[in-house]
Design a protein around this nucleic acid. Structure first.
Lengths: 194, 194
DNA sequence: GTCTATAGGCAGATAGAC
DNA sequence: GTCTATCTGCCTATAGAC
């Protein structure tokens, strides 16, 4: 355990980078700014990360992996009813969005990150995969539009204050399910129609 | 009418800039790229616009003015019922979003533009104003979260293909109204519950 | 692991010729 | 209205000392 510095600064760099990326955007944030805030020079950053883009890749990977996981675990399956699968997808996806809302904020508002193959392009294909999983195999155009609206509603949580999220989470779930026309389990029905 | 070049190139510059800004982001787009695509040099751009940021300002102004207008025209008013006011706000806002969806796409995905006082900051305060107008004076936290979800659902249309928009528009309106709990006028009720 | 120094490039913006 | 030429500044990234 003599390596407390090594792993420590690496994490410091990542969280400082995240703070600046979300506040100013990826392009607008220079390595000098990150280094300055940490108290050393930008050259030192290159000891920990081979290039600037690796910061974005590392920062977004956990979130992207979580979505990827969610989709593979909830493929259409004749043994589970559609609505149950959809409800799981929505509930778990809102969990993921709340847990990683800083990442989502950074990703959705940053055109530079969206262009990167390992970041934005992957995020795009994953969200499309999620939409397909939610829409199911026999959806028509209108269904797919409603799915897009539901995901849009969920993504709106990303720009909320962090401390409003615990209040918002169950409401967002109920809204998304209502948009998709998935019946809430009996005891929660009151929330939707209230 | 000997000035066909003057007004013409100005518009050419704006539409080229919009295309590149939405595709790559504001920061990532250089004046050289814009000039190259138009067949002249970046110095020539400075004859038409005093600085790069004026491109973003000009491009977003019509959309921002439209929202500003919408809000002032639909302030809470004892003479009109809440739900009617809300329905007008939603219907007209979706109209605006569809009409200016390229601008919305550019704005929501570009951190650099969001930082600019005359662009992103103004957009933010306008959207907050729209949320307040939609929530009404006696809304609680849950109401405000639902409003945020409704707006998120509407903004999701910005990333759709342009040719899907005419199909999407009425569906998006009905989704947003349903999220807010505004009853659709009788003949449209079927769409929401379908 | 962090430093200084620097290479090499491209950005936004200006001056002045045509 | 568009050009060439140039200024100034900051960026990413690398090399090599400590």
């Amino acid at each position: 355990m003599g390596e407390k510095t090594a792993a420590g600064t690496r994490q410091d760099i990542l969280s400082t980078a995240m703070a600046l990326f979300t506040a100013q955007g990826y392009d607008a944030t220079s390595l000098r700014q990150i280094a300055d805030r940490l108290g050393f020079t930008k050259a030192a950053l290159y000891y920990h990360f081979p290039a600037k883009e690796h910061l974005a890749i590392e920062l977004t990977r956990p979130w992207l992996d979580a979505i990827s996981n969610l989709i593979t675990l909830n493929q259409p399956d004749p043994r589970v009813p559609q609505d149950e699968r959809r409800r799981r997808l929505i509930e778990d996806y809102v969990d993921i969005v709340v847990a990683h809302h800083a990442v989502l904020r950074f990703l959705t508002q940053d055109a530079a990150a969206q262009k990167h193959p390992d970041v934005g392009k992957r995020a795009l294909s994953l969200v499309i995969g999620l939409q397909d999983a939610l829409a199911g195999p026999e959806a028509d155009d209108a269904d797919r539009i409603r799915v897009a609206c539901a995901i849009g509603a969920i993504h709106a949580t990303a720009i909320m204050d962090s401390d409003a999220l615990t209040t918002a989470q169950p409401i967002v779930v109920s809204v998304a399910l209502a948009v998709l026309g998935v019946d809430a389990p009996a005891k929660k029905a009151a929330q939707v129609t209230a």
